[in-house]
Simulated scan of single mutants.
Amino acid sequence: MLKLGAATAPVRLSILTPFFRCDPTPLLAAMASAPAGVEFVLLDDGSGSAELLARVLTSAAALRAPVRVIVWEKNRGRAAGRNRLVAEAAGDYVLFLDADMIPDCPRFLERWLEVAESEPLAAFGGLSLRKATRTAETALHHNLFGASDCRDAEGRARAPAQFTASANLLVRRDLLAQLPFDSGFVGWGFEDTEWALRAAHLGPILHVDNPATHAGLDDVETLIRKSEEAGPNFARLAAKHPSAVRSFSAHRLAQALRLAPARAALRRACAWLARDPLSATPMIVRRAALKLYRASCYAEHLT
């Protein structure tokens, strides 16, 4: 473990950021003037890049806060990484921020410290695209994310566990000691939803409007790959929380697709539409095709 800086005040909030071949330095630069009582703990989850690690250490040294950087030789996944970060945190509260996030508000951390004063078990600040760059390669993800993930606090509070993500999530540290992430989730997806469904049994998840931008938008090939990775994780989620997951629209669609003939052919057609090789498919059709592709991947693993 690498340590930089020293605390000048008792740590109230630990910012926890895992990264795997993703550069968190823009996130660190956006929080260079962190208020007192904040620390940063980062985990290089097996990136294997001395150049990336050097950039992170240089950026971390510029922060006006104590920083610790943990380096793993091999990638162990998002759930295991977050659990390791929690074990290292010193704050009463932890704030999970993914490496490709950018706070929307200059007072982002101050707002989270204010939320922590009310002592919630957990609080989710929301996601946005305010500072994201839309390119031809990421246009589909931009459209999909804006339609599915960018909700205000009132909209998220209608299904608080389902609309909680670990990308901008404040949690009381002692809760995570008794309720860690399930490290059985590997690859991409749903470890945060599963955690939120368990946490909701212990107390309410507060939803507030303190969003951060998801700046690391994916191209279509990455979206397709992540959809395939998410299939086993979605099945694990459904097996652990069958009653709750039955209300998810993705689960209803996946169950319907289990009965569909020629599912492999359907996936190929959906992938073709999502890729839009002729540059002629309306975005709403591309988005629907990707959703169908995902649900078909889930259907392969549901029982």
Rank of each mutant, 00 (worst) to 15 (best):
R263L: 15
D219P: 07
A215N: 06
D219F: 02
V56D: 06
G231A: 15
T164W: 06
H301Q: 15
A159K: 10
E39K: 10
K291A: 15
L302M: 14
R78Q: 03
H201L: 10
I284W: 13
S247A: 15
L179C: 08
P232L: 05
L4S: 03
H214T: 08
E51Q: 09
L57G: 08
E88P: 01
V245S: 12
A299N: 08
D219R: 06
V67L: 02
F108V: 09
A62I: 02
A132G: 00
E110W: 03
A244L: 10
I205M: 01
A230P: 03
R64E: 13
G125H: 05
L197C: 03
A239R: 15
A274P: 12
L27S: 07
A256P: 00
G91C: 00
R64I: 07
A177F: 07
D276W: 13
A122I: 05
A235I: 09
H241M: 10
L170N: 10
G37I: 03
A289S: 12
E137W: 01
A269E: 04
R267N: 07
F20G: 08
Y293N: 08
L27G: 04
G146A: 11
D44C: 12
A116C: 08
A244H: 13
V71N: 05
G231I: 12
W112P: 06
A32W: 00
A136S: 13
L217R: 00
A254K: 02
D23M: 10
F234P: 05
A61P: 03
L266M: 10
D98H: 08
K131A: 09
V86W: 04
W72P: 00
A153I: 00
R12L: 13
L97R: 05
E117Q: 10
E110D: 15
R78M: 01
L129F: 01
E228W: 09
W72F: 08
E154D: 10
V208I: 14
L140Q: 04
R294E: 15
S279Y: 07
R130T: 11
M1H: 10
M1A: 09
M101L: 11
